[in-house]
C-alpha cells in the first residue's frame, strides 16, 4: 500500500494505491487521522490504483467519515472506485455512506 496526499485550498486529495488489508489498514487509518488532526475534514480519496480492500479498510473509512461529518465540518468522498472494490463496498452497504465520483477533479471541486 502506498498513499500520497495533495493539499488543496478546500480539501485534501488522498490517493490510495495497492492493497489495504489487516496488515496495512492501521497505516491507512493513521494517515486519515493525521489529516483530521491537522484540521482537514474535507477528504477526497482517489482509489484508482487501489487493488484490494478488506473490511479492515472499510472500518477505517467508517471511522474517518464519522469524524469528518461531525459538526458538519466536512466529509469523506470517494473517486474512481475500481469495480471489484465498489461491489464489496455495496455488499457492506457502504456506498450509501459515501458520495462517489468518476473524476477526482470533480470530487475536489465538490468542496
Amino acid at each position: 500500500m502506498e498513499i500520497t496526499t495533495q493539499t488543496f485550498k478546500h480539501c485534501d486529495l488522498i490517493s490510495v494505491n495497492g492493497r489495504v488489508d489487516s496488515a496495512t489498514a492501521p497505516q491507512f487509518a493513521r494517515i486519515l487521522e493525521a489529516a483530521m488532526d491537522a484540521g482537514r475534514f474535507k477528504l477526497v480519496l482517489d482509489l484508482n490504483e487501489l487493488e484490494y480492500m478488506s473490511s479492515a479498510g472499510f472500518r477505517a473509512l467508517l471511522a474517518a467519515q464519522r469524524n469528518c461529518k461531525r459538526y458538519n465540518r466536512g466529509e469523506v468522498v470517494l473517486a474512481r472506485v475500481p469495480q471489484r472494490i465498489r461491489e464489496a463496498l455495496e455488499l457492506a452497504g457502504f456506498t450509501e455512506l459515501f458520495k462517489t465520483f468518476d473524476d477526482p477533479t470533480v470530487a475536489v471541486g465538490n468542496f
Binding site: S54, S55, F58, R59, L62, A63, Q65, A92, E96, L97
Partner: peptide, 22 residues
Amino acid sequence: NVKAKLSKRPIGGLGVYLIRQL
C-alpha cells in the same frame, strides 16, 4: 445492519457478514 445510518453503523461483525455473502 448494513442499512443503518452512519452514526448507528456497527464497527464489528462485517468480516463474518462478508464471508456469508460471498
